[in-house]
C-alpha cells in the first residue's frame, strides 16, 4: 500500500522561489514519500507561472513595460528506490520566459540539474498512526552557462546549490501532516560584467550569493492511491540586497516569498503504475520576487524492477 506514489510537489519550487524559474534543489525532496526498493518512477510535468506585480524591496508594484511575465517549463524527473528507506532523484527542467508588454526578449533553455538523496532515518508505526523522519541531501548545478544578467527574463540564477533538509511526517488514518525545513548553501556566480552595484560598487565579475532557507507545512488526505494536500511554503534568503526603486533585479537580491497552494495526485485503479498529478499555488507575500500564481500538471509511471511481485 505505502510506496506506490511518486512523491508530491514535483517542480513547484522550480517556478516560484524567485523572480523567475529557479529550481535550486530537487523538488521531490520536500515531501514524506518514498519509492520502494528497485522501483523507478519517471515523471514528466509541465508548469506555468506568471505575475504582473512584483516587489521592489517591500514595495509592491506593476510595470507596464513588462505587463505579464510568464514562465513555462517542462521537467523530467527520475526517482529510484535504492532501498526501502533510501531514494535517489534527479530533475532537469527546460524553461521559457516571456513578457506581454514592452520590448524585452524572452529567454529559453535548460536550467539546473538537481540530484538528491533521501533517507528515511526513523519510523514509528502504531495502530493507525505513523511518524517518520527523513533527511535529504541535494545538489544542483546549471547545465549550461545561461544568461543570468537579464532578470526577470533569465531562466535561472546560475548558482550551484547544496541543500540539506529535515522532514517530519505524521499520518493518522488518512490524515497527513508534514513539516520540513531546508538550508540552501549557494555558490558564488560569475556574471559577464566587470562591476556591479549592490549597496556599493563592487569591482568584480564574481557575485556572492546569499544562502537561503525553505520551510514548508503540508497537510491533507493521503490514501493508497490518492493524495490531496494543502501547503504553505516559505523561502527566505539570508542576506542579499533589495532592488532599488526602478532598478533592475539582480541575482543576489534578497528574494523571499510565502506561497499557499493545493496539490493532488491520483494513481489509476486500472493501471496502478500510472499517476496523474496537478497543483496550483499563489504567492501571498514576498520581497524582490514576482507575485506569481502557478499551475502544474504531470504524469508519472512506475517501473518495477523487483523480480516477482507487482508494485501493489
Amino acid at each position: 500500500m505505502k510506496k506506490v506514489y511518486y512523491p508530491l510537489l514535483l517542480g513547484i519550487m522550480a517556478l516560484c522561489m524567485s523572480f523567475f524559474p529557479a529550481a535550486s534543489y530537487a523538488q521531490t525532496e520536500q515531501d514524506a514519500l518514498m519509492m520502494g526498493e528497485r522501483k523507478l518512477c519517471v515523471a514528466a510535468t509541465v508548469q506555468y507561472s506568471s505575475w504582473t506585480n512584483y516587489w521592489e524591496g517591500n514595495f509592491n508594484r506593476d510595470n507596464e513595460n513588462l505587463g505579464r511575465v510568464t514562465s513555462k517549463a517542462a521537467a523530467l524527473m527520475l526517482n529510484y528506490g535504492l532501498k526501502e528507506n533510501l531514494n535517489i532523484m534527479a530533475t532537469l527542467p527546460y524553461i521559457q520566459t516571456a513578457s506581454s508588454k514592452g520590448t524585452l526578449s524572452g529567454l529559453k533553455g535548460f536550467q539546473d540539474l538537481s540530484l538528491a538523496v533521501k533517507w528515511r532515518a526513523l519510523q514509528w508505526q502504531a495502530d493507525r498512526q505513523k511518524v517518520s523522519v527523513f533527511a535529504v541531501g541535494g545538489f544542483s548545478t546549471p547545465t549550461n552557462q545561461y544568461n543570468i544578467e537579464f532578470l526577470p527574463m533569465s531562466v535561472g540564477l546560475g548558482s550551484q546549490v547544496l541543500s540539506g533538509r529535515l522532514i517530519s511526517d505524521l499520518q493518522v488514518n488518512k490524515f497527513s501532516l508534514t513539516l520540513s525545513g531546508a538550508y540552501l548553501h549557494r555558490g558564488n556566480v560569475k556574471i559577464d560584467r566587470s562591476a556591479y552595484y549592490t549597496d556599493r560598487l563592487i569591482n568584480s565579475n564574481e557575485v556572492n550569493m546569499p544562502d537561503a532557507g525553505n520551510f514548508q507545512l503540508r497537510t491533507g488526505y493521503r490514501s493508497s492511491r490518492t493524495i490531496a494536500e494543502a501547503f504553505v511554503d516559505n523561502m527566505t534568503t539570508f542576506g542579499g540586497f533589495d532592488i532599488r526603486k526602478n532598478d533592475m533585479p539582480f541575482v543576489s537580491n534578497r528574494m523571499n516569498s510565502t506561497r499557499v497552494g493545493l496539490e493532488a495526485k491520483h494513481y489509476l485503479a486500472r493501471i496502478p503504475a500510472l499517476g496523474l498529478h496537478a497543483a496550483g499555488w499563489h504567492t501571498l507575500a514576498g520581497r524582490n520576487v514576482g507575485q506569481a500564481i502557478g499551475f502544474l500538471a504531470g504524469v508519472d509511471y512506475i517501473f518495477d524492477f523487483t523480480s516477482n511481485t507487482a508494485s501493489k
Binding site: 533527511a135 545538489f139 558564488n188 566587470s194 568584480s204 564574481e206
Partner: peptide, 27 residues
C-alpha cells in the same frame, strides 16, 4: 553504509560549492 557514503559526498560537495565565498575585487 550508504548514509555515511552520502554524508561524505555531501561534505565533498560542500567544499566544491563553498570554496571561498569572499569576492576579491580587481582593485
Amino acid at each position: 553504509k550508504k548514509p555515511f557514503t552520502f554524508l561524505l559526498s555531501c561534505l565533498c560537495l560542500l567544499h566544491l560549492v563553498s570554496c571561498d565565498k569572499d569576492v576579491v575585487e580587481t582593485n
